[in-house]
């Protein structure tokens, strides 16, 4: 009987000590860094920027914008895979957007006006929605967007990364000449004067009256002038 009591007491003492020791360890561990950043996990509803989606090359030395538009294929609204090469021969206005992005939605009518202008037949507006497909289909239907729309999530982010925009915010628009050389990447909501300025320069590049270096300088100066005005 006494032996049983002794055993019980010993086990109780050991248990109590172990419990308090573990509890104490928990307290002492509770001094982590104030903040531990975590990127949006893959599979989240919205586009994100996890490092594992960024090509290795862009992690070394920061994001880079290529000279030529890289080839890519994304899904069109009708579900068909659509290579960007399908729009060859014309200058591209590649507009990256999302339905949850207010400035993106606001600039769509401006892009729509370019797409519907006969004089701009040498330009091709292509929307790249980085979003859920169902949301884009619904929005495009409600707003009557007439220009081609490509949709993607991780794959569209990969396209953005290939353009040097590895950690995207929206909207951003890539302008190319007729030979798919990237003339400008414009971050933020486009307004009419800025759009006309860039398109005017792109036309002159296509006409052979302006080389790329001069075109870029002209766009930069023009935008500075517009902002200062």
């Amino acid at each position: 009987m006494n032996r049983a009591i002794v055993s019980l007491a010993a086990f109780a003492a050991l248990g109590a000590t172990a419990w308090f020791a573990l509890r104490g360890a928990g307290v002492h561990r509770a001094a982590p860094p104030a903040a531990h950043p975590m990127a949006v996990p893959a599979g989240e509803a919205s586009p994100a920027s996890p490092a594992d989606r960024i090509p290795e090359a862009s992690l070394v030395g920061g994001p880079r914008i290529p000279v030529d538009l890289p080839p890519f294929t994304l899904t069109a609204l009708d579900g068909r895979p659509t290579p960007i090469a399908r729009f060859a021969g014309r200058s591209l206005i590649l507009n990256f957007w999302a339905t949850w992005c207010g400035p993106c939605r606001q600039e769509i009518p401006l892009l729509e006006s370019v797409a519907k202008t006969p004089a701009d037949h040498d330009l091709q507006v292509v929307g790249v929605a980085v979003d859920h497909r169902s949301a884009v289909v619904e929005y495009a239907r409600r707003m009557g967007i007439s220009y081609p729309l490509l949709v993607g999530e991780d794959d569209a982010l990969a396209v953005a990364a290939s353009l040097g925009v590895a950690d995207p915010a929206f909207p951003f628009t890539v302008f190319t000449d007729a030979h798919r050389r990237i003339v400008a990447v414009y971050l933020g909501e486009l307004q009419h004067p800025e759009l006309q300025l860039i398109l005017g320069v792109v036309r002159r590049v296509n006409a052979g009256t302006l080389d790329l270096a001069a075109a870029r300088t002209e766009i930069r100066r023009g935008l500075e002038h517009l902002e200062a005005a």
């Binding site: 880079r64 040097g164 003339v183 414009y186 971050l187 800025e194 766009i219 500075e224 517009l226």
Partner: peptide, 24 residues
């Protein structure tokens, strides 16, 4: 509009995209 345009530099590669603005 205080928007930024990120122009491709004359070299093969441009600066990090969102550190580069061309505004006044």
């Amino acid at each position: 509009a205080t928007l930024c345009a990120f122009l491709v530099s004359t070299s093969a590669l441009a600066s990090p995209w969102w550190l580069r603005g061309t505004g006044a």
